[in-house]
Write a protein that binds this DNA or RNA. Sequence first.
RNA 1: UCAGUCGGCCGGACGGCCGCUUCCGCAAACGCCGAAAGGCCGCGGGGGAGGAAAGUCCGGGCUCCAUCGACAUGCGGUGCCGGAUAACGUCCGGCGGGGGCGACCCCAGGGAAAGUGCCACAGAAAGCGAACCGCUCCGAACUCCGAAAGGAGGCCGGCAGCAAGGGUGAAAAGGUGCGGCAAGAGCGCACCGCGGGUCCGGCAACGGAACCGGCAUGGUAAACCCCACCGGGAGCAAGACCGAAUAGGGACGGCAUCAGCGGGCCGUUCGCGACAGCGAUAACGCCGCAGGGCCGAUGUCAGGCCAGCCGUCCGGGUAGGUUGCAUGAGGUGGCGCGCGAGCGCCAUCCCAGAGGAAUGGCCGUCACGUAUCGUCUCGCGCGAGCGGGCGAUGCCCUACAGAACCCGGCUUACAGGCCGGCUGAUAUC
Length: 149
Amino acid sequence: MDRLRQRADFLAVADGVRASSPAFVVQHRERQDCGPIRVGFTVTKKNGTATERNRIRRRLRELVKRLDAISMRPHSDYVLVGRRAALTRDFAAMLEDLRGALGRLDRQRSNPHSGREGGGSGRYASGAPGRPARSPDNEMHGLNDETER
RNA sequence: UCAGUCGGCCGGACGGCCGCUUCCGCAAACGCCGAAAGGCCGCGGGGGAGGAAAGUCCGGGCUCCAUCGACAUGCGGUGCCGGAUAACGUCCGGCGGGGGCGACCCCAGGGAAAGUGCCACAGAAAGCGAACCGCUCCGAACUCCGAAAGGAGGCCGGCAGCAAGGGUGAAAAGGUGCGGCAAGAGCGCACCGCGGGUCCGGCAACGGAACCGGCAUGGUAAACCCCACCGGGAGCAAGACCGAAUAGGGACGGCAUCAGCGGGCCGUUCGCGACAGCGAUAACGCCGCAGGGCCGAUGUCAGGCCAGCCGUCCGGGUAGGUUGCAUGAGGUGGCGCGCGAGCGCCAUCCCAGAGGAAUGGCCGUCACGUAUCGUCUCGCGCGAGCGGGCGAUGCCCUACAGAACCCGGCUUACAGGCCGGCUGAUAUC
């Protein structure tokens, strides 16, 4: 499991599906390569001073470490956006929050019409019948694949 | 013991489980990620936030750019003296002024007789030295006393003197006292203040002494200004090296560039021919001219689109990567010099290096603090109660706060605690 570091990767994940909980928001994107799971963390300045932001990021990082790897899908990118409640919320409760949020992300993926109804996602779902529903930003990934080869 | 003042220091401890990052050693081949540059995976050992890492307010190192080497001008900054320092607006030691019984604290503390400006309100007047209420004097109508001479009062007037007293103000033209005078006034005198040169002490700021001058220049320079001194600009997102995709630049090669008109035999070609030449434009090349090509069933007009495509190579540059990047005005200890800030010598140590940003997460035990309750042949008090010790439980489970190229400062924030010097008051000896 790797950390997400490039700004472009964060922007790509931000266009994907998301699930929120009291202490954080989880964003997810499935990549088309065979790389490992990558996880990034975002804590903006509105959440407090540098010390508080550091603590939020460290607690979120610890959550991911405690999580069983099977809860996450392979070769995917995840971003956890921290909220101020992550400073004080009980750690065990936050772990349950994360498991629940990942489960909700899975359900959104298997049943796309009950999930986000973003602009133009329907034609992709119908165009790829045997595969899981793809988020609308897959159009961009296709372009990237062409340029890489 | 209480109150105060100054300086220094700490800023939870120990343990368990699971991690992150960096360096060193071993192993370095296969492999993995990436287009490349480059990065990554194992084992063992060591290191891993602060006193402010903060604000980014000063001063430097370092880097690049510009160039000035000097002077002038402009702009900005600094502003008692001496010292410390790489430097400073910092620090130390003094001086002067102000505050406090005192320890001690505070001061943007050069120049106001170079010039200009301003001085609200109040007040007569706020600066080319004034006169409101006043004081004194003089004059005269008039009134009173008197027989008279004369005396007293006096609206008012004076191009007469004065500035003591009142009142205003932050500030009113030296202050206090005595003398003096019609009343007064440095008019005279004494002391204080001020100014001047002299002498003495001090490196100096400055202090002291006697003498002289009767006193002349109100405040404001965080108003302009004058004087002295200092200052080139931008910043590690500096800079250096490597280096995609895409677009664009350059060079070379290939393909495509329909079809047209004219010229002329220069070459090929064709015809004639005696093999020297002559002729021909039917064809290609050549030269010149014009026409661009594509789109809709076609034509005209109008309109729109495209004016190349492909390959190889070169150079600049972006994303990205590597570096800069931690041995330094360095820490600790000892000795010496100095009142001190500091300086010198010796020994010893290597002590964070991230880059969507490591230095942690979750627990346990114990301290510390705090609140409530209980308890004690504890202390004080008539008592309600207050204080102390012990125990239990809860809370906070710590405050301010997170390195970002590196140093020296300043400023600001900070729960709680420790140590030392000094001052004042009280009690006891």
